[in-house]
Design a protein around this nucleic acid. Structure first.
Lengths: 191, 191
DNA sequence: CGTCTCGTTGAGAGTTTTCAATGTAAGTGG
DNA sequence: CCACTTACATTGAAAACTCTCAACGAGACG
């Protein structure tokens, strides 16, 4: 939970009282490796903040059964389907623990109540969403403008920590590369 | 300006007084075709809401000089580099009018002051950012999971209006396709 | 051990790009 | 009004990149 506080405090200030209030709205959940936080077809009941471990968000192709990674999340990141969470409509996304993980969960009613009690959190969420949008636009840019090797190199520079926590074939999918291609890229001398 | 109000009112309610306050913080600017709203290397001074016309956000490759479209914006959309706007650091993005355009602009100091005067706008911005994040994740998913033809078909369904307002070679870049490839896809019978 | 997960490697196939040429419509200046 | 430029779209052939498929290897774990 300290991790969430420090994340929030990078953008707005919190009193001990605030932290107390915030804590009361969240529940901690442990996930086994492979356990689902959200399954396609069901509603995203919780917004999740990752405290430990790593998760993948992915879409399974109805025809081929292939998994396409949409996002990866490790400690200090968020992992949920925002649209499904806020509209309470069925999600097309799966979220699953890659490793054993600990997440902090908040339901939509609790989320709304929390924002009413601590309106300054609106600002926090707005700010992290701004960063998120920027990061996603950058990801789209790299996907469109650069080849597989260049994308992988950029990925390593930007998220050096992820390399150790996430299997390569999932990183490949995240980057829009086949697992075999990424393996061949890594075999090249000039990384 | 009415367009901005109706955009906001899709998510939160506004009194006439609110509208009056909001109006006072924005300035209207007309752009000629090809005119820059933001140039790479400079700071994004304004958050822009498009009232008329269409704009492109793109990154120019330093080596090849190629333009890579990062986003397209038409009436009722936002167009800015959020990161540069909020940090006031140099942007790597260009934003240029594709057609003659009218935009509503707000500076960062004005933006912050507006949010202090009308805190409920925090909620509005948080909500539209949530939708934006969802749309960008969907875009990434399609980019990674589907071939050029399928992406174009999905694009036509999702944004039928854009087809008439944006030249094809820019739509191609937006979708991560070469202009020639898109032309060949359109020549196929079974769109 | 035997299985499961994950990574590697190679060959062939497929998609998409690049390059170059051509066409067309719209604007601009004489 | 016409010639000329500019912007955009089309087409074809060759090249480049990436994928698929298939086989194999290595480590973890029960």
């Amino acid at each position: 939970m300290e991790l969430l506080f420090s994340n929030i405090q990078r953008h707005i200030s919190l009193s001990e009282e605030d932290k107390h209030i915030i804590s009361s709205f969240w529940t901690i959940k442990r996930l086994n490796r492979g356990e689902h936080l959200l399954s396609a077809g069901s509603v995203c009941r919780y917004d999740a903040f990752v405290l430990e471990g790593s998760l993948k968000g992915y879409i399974t192709d109805a025809d081929t059964g292939r998994e396409e990674i949409v996002f990866l999340a490790v400690a200090d990141w968020w992992a949920s389907d925002l649209e499904s969470f806020h509209t309470q409509h069925a999600s097309s996304l799966n979220i699953t623990a890659i490793t054993p993980a600990t997440v902090a969960l908040i339901s939509l009613p609790a989320f709304n109540e929390l924002l009413e009690k601590l309106p300054k959190l609106e600002k926090y969420f707005r700010i992290i969403l701004q960063y998120h949008v920027t990061a996603l636009l950058r990801r789209i840019y790299y996907r469109n403008a650069h080849d597989a090797k260049s994308r992988y190199k950029t990925f390593l520079q930007q998220y050096p920590a992820l390399q150790e926590q996430i299997p390569q074939y999932l990183i490949a999918s995240y980057l829009g590369i086949s697992a075999e291609m990424l393996s061949k890229i890594r075999a090249q001398k000039d990384l």
